[in-house]
């Protein structure tokens, strides 16, 4: 079977399963929608309690603070969803006892993971950013909508390196039987992406970290979009370029990572 047919087959299967899953977990689906607002409300509340929003805006380096916070919360929530879902996938499959069946399926574990994870990532990101679209339109009109679409594009671009990172963490967790690789991943990203505070506030070591995390760049894009009226496409292209480079880099590590998971399982056995 050709690679393309495998990819299409897996994408269809994962789309079906994820849609069923959302249908069967309406609360989760609703939370995916509501989460950006809860987060934004929290930050706005915190911001006004500690000082004024304009102080926040100038400190973090953004334009319209409400527009920014809501949009950035959308970015953050979708990124966290992607990372969490992807990173836990391998361990979940193991606990459910599904992993051996995926391995014994004709496309195999590597394909099902790499192609399969794109689907839930895209669906959940689309839900989270659709949720923030009304606020963007309310604050900036149709230009706000354009900005949301641009951010969604960048988020989609960022999902590929994010999945790569998550799969690396998931693989390490499975091989070393150590969950912390997975469980600290999204809090770490939240910390270093500089969503709600300037990166300069972070210790140097975490600042370095923030450069290798894709979310940072999407957040940066959200900052830029909140400052400019028309989206400055030259700057955004740079960001897109960095994300593409990261996609390649991380997945070049993730793929062999999955291969070693498979090797490990086939050597040491896995509970069925």
């Amino acid at each position: 079977m050709s690679e393309l047919r495998y990819a299409r087959m897996i994408v269809k299967a994962e789309f079906y399963a994820y849609m069923c899953w959302l249908k069967n977990n309406k609360l989760f689906a609703f939370m995916t929608l509501a989460w950006p607002y809860l987060m934004a409300a929290f930050i706005l509340g915190l911001g006004t309690a500690l000082g004024s929003l304009s102080v926040f805006a100038s400190k973090v380096g953004v334009g319209d603070p409400i527009f920014y916070i809501v949009l950035a919360s959308g970015v953050l929530v979708s990124s966290i969803n992607v990372v969490d879902y992807s990173a836990w996938t391998l361990l979940d499959l193991k606990w459910l006892g599904v992993l051996p069946y995926i391995m014994a399926s004709p496309p195999g574990l590597r394909r099902v993971t790499m192609y399969g994870l794109i689907i839930p990532a895209m669906i959940s990101s689309a839900i989270s950013l659709t949720a923030v679209a009304p606020v963007a339109v309310f604050t900036e009109g149709s230009l706000g909508l354009v900005k949301v679409v641009v951010v969604l594009g960048l988020v989609y671009l960022a999902t590929i390196p994010l999945i790569g990172i998550a799969v690396i963490a998931g693989s390490l967790s499975l091989i070393f039987k150590e969950e912390s690789f997975v469980s600290f991943l999204s809090p770490l990203m939240l910390l270093v992406s500089g969503v709600y505070y300037p990166l300069a506030f972070l210790p140097k070591i975490l600042q370095v970290f923030s450069y290798i995390v894709p979310v940072t760049y999407v957040v940066e894009a959200a900052k830029i979009l909140s400052i400019y009226g028309m989206p400055p496409f030259n700057k955004l292209f740079w960001i897109a370029g960095i994300l593409v480079a990261m996609s390649i880099l991380y997945n070049l590590i993730a793929y062999p990572g999955l291969r070693s998971v498979e090797k490990n399982v086939r050597k040491h056995g896995i509970s069925t």
Binding site: M9, I10, K12, A13, Y16, A17, C20, W21, N24, N25, L96, G97, V98, P100, Y101, I102, S105, P106, P107, V112, T272
Partner: peptide
């Protein structure tokens, strides 16, 4: 074991069939 808990029997079979 070996199936997704939050899918029905039908949905589970369909997923593995699609794979």
């Amino acid at each position: 074991r070996g199936f997704f808990w939050k899918l029905t029997g039908y949905e589970n079979l369909k997923y593995f069939g699609m794979l």
